[in-house]
Nucleic acid binder design. Structure first.
Lengths: 249, 249
DNA sequence: TGTTAGATTAGGTATGACCGAAAGCACGTT
DNA sequence: AACGTGCTTTCGGTCATACCTAATCTAACA
């Protein structure tokens, strides 16, 4: 019998048809080939163009939809409309990581300490009047001490995200959006926010806002760093107290 | 004729069946209900359990797959296996944002200046011996001045990601992973990396590595800040020169 | 005791049908 | 002329069924 031919083949990869189609459309969208809001061909049209089944085409569109690259509308003159990803898409994937990996609140606060002072610095450099309005608005609704905890925390998130927006850096904005929301939900049910904490927080926010308004990056960094650090310390302190109160579960 | 009743209805939302199923399974996965690697029911099994068609079930699974929550294997004893998202999932969505929004290199470098010094600080605090090995390895392969530009840049990415890993903060790691890769691809075809830049970069990396090894957070921050800042300045400088060289086009 | 050729079980794809939502149109009323 | 009303059309959403292909298991065979 003939000996085995020493033919070597590299492992053959058989990509899924829907992935291939999704990748091709994704590249063309990212290349900027279609203006934002323009309509892709209808599903049935794509079927005839690609010789694929409708199920395959639909899965490809679903992939793009999850990735935030298209928005799908139903009804007549519906279909897939090109959309460029925004901070929300980053925020949602960060959210999945945080929840899936059970990232602890302490790690979230550490991350905020790492990122947000830099946001404040950039905000002080690049802020517009509209950015200032947004920050003032958040400060106002936070100064309503009679509001519910959720309202307070929502205004808190708005302010922090507002700082990120004022940095005019979309990456940082998306990241801070996710981080702020995650901290919000972790904080919402822990009950260590009392009137004193509220007033301290509001004072700190106003102080940072003033630095941003005055376009003083150094002060903005310093004050933001102090704010997020002391907030983190307060949370850790309460965490420890809670652990003592509830030794096991 | 009777006057219109002042009945007000809020807009009714009709969620898609596949979204509902995906959301339910996602929540259960994120809640930690299934250990990592465990198998979800097969498609046909889900069909009987949910009274949905297989196409719907498949779309739901596809959503979870894109979100990095399950990995799907074909063949006998295949199916959907639970997976917890890692830095890659964040990296890919950040990548989509960068490319879809045409984020300029200058903005990427600005973001790195904002985030990476803090990474270095945390790395100096929490680094393990394995982290140091990873950094040393990257430095070694970068010291090979005869290597190609791609090899140099890859080692560069490895080092920067290595710092993020050493921070032991999964959020920052995922973010820096995406950022480093994006800077890599933007830098790969610009040709402003010469021998001098290589040596300067290597020196800076070694200097930061030393601070991390010595668990000196302040030095790590300072040196990293200086490194990424001077790198950014060098890039901007070359950008301007390039614009002059190529006035239109 | 390996090797290998089926059998089995999973996902991947293709058809074809029908439902429901939304935009457009035409008719009819005011 | 202006405005509802309802029909028609054209989309995506869902379902059912069939068949293909990949990966594994199993059992016969050399």
């Amino acid at each position: 019998m003939a000996t085995r031919q020493p033919v070597r083949l590299s492992p053959v990869r058989v990509p899924k048809a829907s992935d291939v189609l999704a990748t091709e459309m994704r590249e063309r969208i990212l290349r900027g080939e279609f203006p934002e809001g323009s309509a892709l061909p209808t599903e049935r049209e794509l079927v005839t163009q690609t010789d694929m089944s409708r199920a395959t085409v639909r899965e490809a569109l679903r992939i793009l939809e999850v990735q935030g690259l298209v928005r799908i509308k139903t009804g007549r003159s519906g279909g897939a409309f090109v959309q460029h990803p925004d901070g929300e898409s980053i925020a949602s994937s960060v959210d999945l990581l945080i929840r899936g990996r059970q990232i602890r609140l302490a790690a979230l606060l550490e991350t905020r300490e790492a990122v947000e002072p830099a946001c404040a610095q950039l905000a002080a450099k690049y802020r517009t009047d509209a950015d200032l309005d947004r920050l003032d608005l958040a400060n106002e609704s936070m100064s309503d001490t009679s509001g519910s905890l959720s309202d307070f925390l929502q205004a808190n998130v708005d302010w922090h995200v507002g700082v990120a927006i004022a940095s005019h850096n979309e990456l940082l904005t998306g990241f801070m959006l996710a981080l702020s929301r995650a901290i919000y939900t972790s904080t919402n049910n822990r009950g260590f926010i009392n009137t004193e904490v509220r007033q301290t927080t509001l004072r700190a926010h106003r102080s940072v806002t003033t630095a941003i308004r005055g376009q003083d990056p150094d002060a903005a960094v310093r004050r933001m760093k102090r704010h997020v650090h002391s907030y983190a310390e307060a949370v850790v302190e309460v965490e420890e107290r809670t652990e003592i109160d509830l030794p096991d579960r």
